[in-house]
Design a protein around this nucleic acid. Structure first.
Lengths: 286, 286
DNA sequence: CTTGTTTTTGTAACTTTACTACATTTAGAC
DNA sequence: GTCTAAATGTAGTAAAGTTACAAAAACAAG
């Protein structure tokens, strides 16, 4: 993980004075890299060796090495995690911060991904008779999106955020049917019940949800994104984005697995959609 | 231009000894940033002041500043690559590539964002009587998601992907009503018509869509993400993600604009949702 | 609440690093 | 060859970073 993220995530392991240093650096990292250890220490109200120890705790060889790594971490355009939105931020700052934290969450998700359940999901979908995507609340739109993508394919697929519709589908499910349950927490009661019903019918139940959650208990396998998110403060944002990208990946895998003939079909579907749009005057490529 | 490129392009202006230094740095830049001026000078077979002068000639304040800039220039070197998915990629590779290209698209979107229409959107929503989110296809789930978020707020909001429902809403719209039209291409006929109707009724029509598109003609203002996307090959993926993050930003702006009392209300909504979930056994913070 | 122990923090001496002023060398022009 | 100017290096100096150790603070046990 990159240095700035580490500073903010490992704050709990720091001592009181070290936290002062951390706060200063997270507040204005660009400035910190141009300061000497003495001036940084003075600004943080601590002694120079404290700053040095702070650097060492982060695995750096010393202060110069720390500055170097910090500079790299900044240059990478690596999102500043946990730069919370503050009371009098303007719209531009808010937008940047939201984008930053989403980028950060995504790159964390990418690193911590386990490809085995993803491969298994692709496998199951390729041989599925019919596929359902269920979810509630914020996860409903994720399920909606997934089904939208699958609508272009020839395997029958449904989306629903209606518990009764979901229940009916689950009751009618059979082996070789695939049910994808989407939930950030994995604790939504209604969805757990549906999953259990389908699971009983020997349908393939896949969870895009938190590992070791009540929902994942009823799933054949679980794909999770491990996005750190402060759901206490605001609603799930980044985790939902990670789920969507995950589904994109699953779909890309599915498309590829189906082979070249299948992709020809897709091209035809795409062509068929053109009638619903205004044609372009310009010749610019979209 | 970035430092490494400058070193190689400005070589002609360097003196003989300075060129030795340049050659050394271009050969192994990663190593150079961990060396002291003395060891670098020795390695290049020149004196320390020569290295220092070399740094100054490149516009750096001195050797430490040079190292810093060099480090940044190196870190920037490898952004998220937009590698295409290939025929016999395995699932892991596909997943990484999809995440990479999404990350890439998001960071491009972040840079090219214009905050003025975003601010205007927040403004309009804060004083809105009712808000609608409309879209078709892939954009339907984006609209769905947006409405989901707004469902927690006290301003009445709707989502629809049904042209008739949309039309009825548009016909009944009034000034101070806000209509958010979401479309990747901005060329979906049905949505343009709806926008036109609402626009005629003097409702505030906001487009999350391509600039200078038929749809944006009927919008008071347009928020766009400028994500380069190869829609010919696959379906829109990254652009849709960028739209979602954009909406997150708008919602964050909205929440903040509404002030602290409003956020207390949100906390109560959140508390109210708990009944629908299984409680946690573990005490770990989510 | 006191005492002993451990952890944290700061002070001061020390080492390393980078910079400056000046001397020397080198290259080019006449 | 000699003068001039540019380039390079030497040595001293200033600044920055590190280490060892002592003081202070936090903690636990009696």
């Amino acid at each position: 993980m990159d240095l700035i993220n580490r500073i903010s995530s490992e704050q709990s392991q720091f001592s009181k004075s070290e936290r002062k240093v951390a706060a200063l650096i997270l507040h204005e990292p660009e400035q910190a890299i141009h300061r000497s250890i003495a001036s940084l220490a003075a600004l943080a109200g601590v002694s120079e060796p404290t700053v040095n120890r702070f650097c060492r705790r982060l695995g750096c060889k010393g202060y110069p090495d720390f500055k170097l790594q910090l500079a790299q971490s900044l240059a990478q355009g690596t999102p500043y995690v946990n730069r919370d939105i503050e009371e009098n931020d303007n719209v531009d700052q808010i937008t940047q911060k939201i984008f930053d934290s989403t980028l950060n969450a995504l790159s964390i998700a990418r690193q911590s991904l386990d490809s085995r359940p993803i491969a298994a999901t692709v496998e199951a979908m390729v041989s599925a008779r019919k596929i359902a995507f269920f979810g509630f609340g914020a996860s409903a739109s994720v399920a909606h999106d997934a089904q939208n993508k699958f609508a272009r394919f020839d395997t029958p697929s449904v989306f629903s955020d209606d518990p009764l519709v979901q229940r009916m589908w689950a009751i009618n499910s059979e082996p070789n049917d695939v049910l994808v349950c989407i939930s950030h927490t994995g604790r939504t009661k209604a969805l757990c019940e549906i999953a259990a019903i389908a699971h009983n019918n020997k349908a393939t139940v896949i969870g895009i949800t938190a590992p070791n959650s009540p929902l994942s208990e009823n799933c054949q396998f679980t794909v999770s994104t491990n996005v750190p998110e402060d759901t206490d403060q605001y609603m799930p944002m980044a985790s939902r984005i990670a789920q969507l990208v995950l589904i994109d990946a699953i779909i890309a895998g599915y498309t590829l697995q189906r082979g070249p003939k299948f992709r020809e079909k897709l091209a035809r579907v795409k062509e068929g959609l053109k009638g619903s749009r205004y044609s372009k005057q310009t010749t610019t490529k979209e």
